[in-house]
Amino acid sequence: MNSNPYIQFVYALVFCFISADESVYAVEDYSMVRKNMVQLIKYDVQSTRDYLDKDKLNAKVLKVLETVPRHEFVPESQIPYAYENRPLPIGHGQTISQPYIVAIMTDLLQLSPDSRVLELGTGSGYQAAVLSGLVKEVYSIEIVEPLGIAAQKRLQKLGYGNVTVKIGDGYYGWEEHAPFDAIIVTAAASHIPPPLVEQLKAGGRMMVPVGSFFVTQQLLLVHKQTDGKLINRQILPVRFVPVTGDH
């Protein structure tokens, strides 16, 4: 009976589910939505400039973000959301970071075309693909075998030839390809492994996003000075002043 309020409540619920499903839009031209995503990132970065010490991100990083097909790195169910500025689940309890955070992290590493980069925690391979377009060589270690194998195949298929993936323990880095100009530790770590610090070139940078699986709370940027000393920068990836009235 339609007049029954309880049944109407159930109808309303079902309607919500259906309408949520309809928001799954079909996207034909991914390059356009990628551009939109990058525009959004540019805008957001401007409002965070105080914290990043810059007005805008490196143009090359943005260019690469416009070309890497993020939708290829997420499971089919997540493709409709691939270009939304949010983290996405990729199965096995793993996530792909928010594009805004990927952009900032990549930018802060100050990469050059002849850089050699080590990544701990390949995940779906998206970060490695972004790095691939900016540097000479990317070495990526994934501890979860099925994820690593899938990422390796995906990166190969998409033609990211300068990315090498291996399955294993990242704690000791990748000795045979060391030293690295940059290291990015996307896998959760209780501390920064001392061997990684050793494998970082003098003048090199290491990026460690800190937070829970979906939410990045801060970015830790370790800078190894030319004299070997270490200076960390702890960066809040957002323009937020914790005290009102004193700025």
């Binding site: 939410v215 809040l236 957002v238 323009r239």
Partner: peptide
């Protein structure tokens, strides 16, 4: 309100 407005700008952790 401020934190919600920063959600997409890296503010989710707040």
């Amino acid at each position: 309100p401020e934190m919600l407005s920063l959600l997409s700008k890296g503010g989710a952790g707040l």
